[in-house]
Amino acid sequence: MPIWRGYDFHMTLFLSKRIAIGILTLLVASVIVFSIMEILPGDPARIMLGMNATPEALAALREQMGLNVPLLERYVNWVTGMAVGDFGNSYTYRSPVIDLIAERAVVSLPLAVISLVLSTVIAIPVGIFAAARRGRMGDTVSMGTAQVGVAIPNFWFALLLIYVFAVWLRLVPAGGFPGWAGGIWPGVKALILPAIALALPQAAILARVTRSAMLEVLGEDYIRTARAKGMPRRYVLWRHALRNAMIPVLTILGLQFAFLLAGTIIIENVFYLPGLGRLVFQAITQRDLIVVEGVVMLLVASVVLVNILVDIAYAMVDPRLRARA
């Protein structure tokens, strides 16, 4: 790509504006998360010590946990702490939140990445195939399947997968995660079903978007020109059309990443995977606020980051978007 050759003023402006908006989004999000957690009923110190705690012990623990500091100061401490990677200490696990996150991310991140790759690898060729055969049998069948796929709740699909592949055929474990210590294969094996369950409904959406984006591009004049000057159909499809159809596809991919991260909450609960989703779900039910706050902010940050990356990818695909910044 020629964009990075030399200094590009528009790209620099575009990037700085995007990053500034991203940081602003994070700050507003942190205020929202903090406020929600503040209005939550329940005193974390009391939850830690139980109902029979003496007032003295309670006061001492509140002091130790920094709960006596004024609200604004606590917010500032929290945000500045996160900026340097200190997410505080969990009340229930009694260990740094960042360690808990790191421990769980080795499950959730591979899961999200595998399902994203899986859904992309399935959806984009299907979308192109359907667009190329518009109105014919192949189009009708693949888009009909996609229409059904969009309607399937991923956790229900997960239950069916467990029944068929784990209970009935006994090919893969029904749940749990052996960790990566015993080699890559046992870990991947435990993630296959959850990844498929997450990926297929997403693939259905992506295939539909790819198809309509391709159809839109295929109606353009330059496609007709390319065909008229004798370029092979296949070449026009993959070289000219696909590249121009990428913008809406990239948008959906960016959105899907956020969706996948949140989707892991349910899927991890179905498969008893010790990932971020299960961590945050358990932390919510145990009122372990600091963990909830940390994980939610991390998820929001990754969504913001992915959106910035998608915008950069746009600018690389379409130089006109850079100039508009």
Binding site: A29, L261, A262, L299, V300
Partner: peptide, 12 residues
Amino acid sequence: VVFAFPALLSAI
């Protein structure tokens, strides 16, 4: 900002 929150997570 609201869009940056994974909707399902926030609903939970």
